[in-house]
Structure formats: structure tokens, C-alpha cells
């Protein structure tokens, strides 16, 4: 067996499958930094996946499909933001509702539109760096042989890291999650910042979903994400809401999953079920090793007690 080829395939698949995860997770992290715990990520990913797929099918353009998915995600994220921040809805409740509604609606519409047929998108897409792939074994094709969206996605994550770390906007988002009164007192609209953060989070989750259906799979099926949204939430916390850390963790998660498949091909006689455990046990171990002293954004809607609506600078905004 060609070990090199297998390792390349595992690496390539791990990196590609990490894309929807890291996009959604980064989005969730941005939202949580702003104090919004969005359990609706799974639903938003599905909405993005379905929209992206449908647009791609209609326009015969993968790029437009991805944009469509992102747009749908933006919309959903904005609705979540407005719901929580302006209307004062309970974040957990609204998020769970989004997950159920998103999953149900996309499955329902898919059945209505396509019935028992399974349309597929063309799998070919440009691979801009393919020529570089030859130069390094394993890492070469794994990293450089990917389709173009792969690089766009990682660029976006990199951009998110920059924005959160270096820009005023990023600072505002983080401040709103830590101490809304302080932001309020300075005269910055807490509402606007949070809604924007929620929209961005939704956008990224939608793009992640579209990435899955349009780029990675080339088709949509009801519940195609199979819990990826919840894993994204978990990784956002594990990665301390920092995009670069999340990126590393997502890659490791993907690699551990691939390792499970790869090990099945060896002579080692372990049950496939136990091998599937690797990534999940890995997360727990990582948490135990690094999780102590994990400081969450102070105003993250964690307890069931609802966060008060932030009112503009009348001085009466309260925090729990």
C-alpha cells in the first residue's frame, strides 16, 4: 500500500473537511465574544448548505452558490442578533429554535423541490496551486492541491483573526462581550455592535454550510451537517474564541477523524467503532490539559438568566 498516498489523502481530506468547521466555529467565536451564545449554528449551516446548493444548481456557478449560502447565513444571523438584542429573546431558546427550524425547513423544502432524485453538482473546480503540489511529499498535494475555495476560506479565517485582534471593530466586539456598560458609557451602540457580530457569525456559518454542500460534497441531503454545527460550538470554546487557535484545533480534529479511517486500513485489529472515538476523546483530553482557567467573556449568555436589553446611554443598563 502506498503509505504516502494514503497520508496525503488523509491530510487533504482532513484539511478540506475542516473548512466548514472552522468557518462556522470562527463565526460562533465572534458571536460569543460579543456575548451571544448561538446554539442555532447547526440550523444556520443547514440553511447555508441548502441555499448554496440550490443557487449553484440554478446558476451553474459554484461561486454564486457559496455567496448565496453566505447571504442566507447573514440573514439568519441577523435575525438571531435582532431577536436576542433588540427583542430580548432568550439566546439558548432562540438558538435551539433556529436549529430545529433551519433543519426542518431545509429538509422539507428539499423534499418538495427534488422528491426522490438526488441532483449532483459538478465536482470540478479550479485548483490554483496544483503545480506547487509536486514539490513536497504528502504536504505538497495535501495543502497545495486543494480547490480554490479552500484557500479563500482560510484567508477569511486569517482575516477574522486580524479583525478581532487589530481593529477597532474587533475591540468593540470583545468589549461588548466583557463589559457592555463600559461600551455603553463611551457612547457606542451595544445593540448595533452585537447585531453586527451576530450577522457576521451567521454569515460565516452559512458560508461553512455552503462550503460543505457545494465544495466538499457537491450535493445536499437533509441534515447533511450531522451535528457539525454543535462541534463548531464546542471547538469555539475549546479554542478560546481565537480564530487561529480554532483553526489549529479544527485541523487536529479533522486529522484525528482521518486517522481513525487510516488506522482501519492497517493490520491493527481494532474495532472501527472505537477508532471513531479518537477526535471526541481528543477534544476532552485537550480541554482537560488546557481548559483550566478558561476565562469566558463575562457577559456571555451562559446561565439561563436572560441578559437584560441594553438601552442606549441613559445609564440604566444593568448587568447580572
Amino acid at each position: 500500500m502506498n503509505i504516502e498516498a494514503v497520508m496525503t489523502a488523509i491530510l487533504s481530506a482532513a484539511l478540506l473537511s475542516a473548512v466548514p468547521l472552522v468557518l462556522a466555529s470562527t463565526g460562533e467565536a465572534i458571536g460569543e465574544r460579543a456575548g451571544l451564545l448561538n446554539l442555532g449554528t447547526e440550523g444556520i449551516m443547514l440553511v447555508g448548505a441548502f441555499s448554496g446548493f440550490w443557487v449553484s444548481l440554478r446558476t451553474e456557478s459554484l461561486a454564486l452558490g457559496l455567496l448565496g449560502g453566505a447571504a442566507a447565513g447573514c440573514l439568519a444571523g441577523a435575525l438571531f442578533g435582532i431577536g436576542c438584542v433588540v427583542i430580548g429573546a432568550d439566546q439558548v431558546l432562540l438558538g435551539l429554535g433556529l436549529t430545529l427550524a433551519g433543519g426542518g425547513l431545509t429538509a422539507f423544502l428539499f423534499r418538495e423541490l427534488f422528491g426522490s432524485s438526488q441532483p449532483l453538482l459538478p465536482t470540478s473546480a479550479g485548483r490554483p496551486f496544483n503545480t506547487l503540489a509536486e514539490h513536497l511529499p504528502v504536504i505538497g498535494p495535501g495543502v497545495f492541491g486543494q480547490k480554490w475555495f479552500f484557500y479563500v476560506a482560510w484567508l477569511i479565517v486569517f482575516g477574522a483573526e486580524l479583525v478581532m485582534r487589530r481593529t477597532t471593530f474587533g475591540l468593540r466586539i470583545r468589549a461588548v462581550g466583557e463589559s457592555p456598560q463600559a461600551v455603553d458609557a463611551v457612547g457606542i451602540s451595544v445593540t448595533r455592535t452585537q447585531c453586527l457580530a451576530a450577522t457576521i457569525a451567521g454569515c460565516l456559518a452559512g458560508l461553512g454550510g455552503a462550503g460543505l454542500s457545494v465544495m466538499e460534497l457537491g450535493f445536499f441531503q437533509p441534515n447533511v451537517t450531522l451535528g457539525l454545527g454543535f462541534i463548531a460550538i464546542a471547538l469555539a470554546m475549546l479554542g478560546r474564541w481565537t480564530p487561529w487557535r480554532i483553526a489549529v484545533i479544527a485541523i487536529m480534529f479533522g486529522l484525528l477523524r482521518g486517522l481513525g479511517s487510516g488506522l482501519q486500513l492497517t493490520r491493527w485489529d481494532v474495532s472501527p467503532d472505537l477508532l471513531q472515538l479518537l477526535p471526541y476523546v481528543g477534544v476532552i483530553v485537550a480541554l482537560i490539559l488546557t481548559g483550566k482557567g478558561l476565562r469566558m467573556p463575562s457577559a456571555l449568555g451562559q446561565t439561563y438568566a436572560q441578559r437584560r436589553r441594553r438601552r442606549p446611554a441613559t445609564g440604566s443598563a444593568t448587568q447580572e
Binding site: A101, G104, L105
Partner: peptide, 9 residues
């Protein structure tokens, strides 16, 4: 699931 989601929302 769609109406359950609508319910929660």
C-alpha cells in the same frame, strides 16, 4: 421539526 423550531422561536 419545522414547526417545533417555529414554536421555540
Amino acid at each position: 421539526p419545522t414547526i417545533e423550531g417555529a414554536l421555540l422561536i
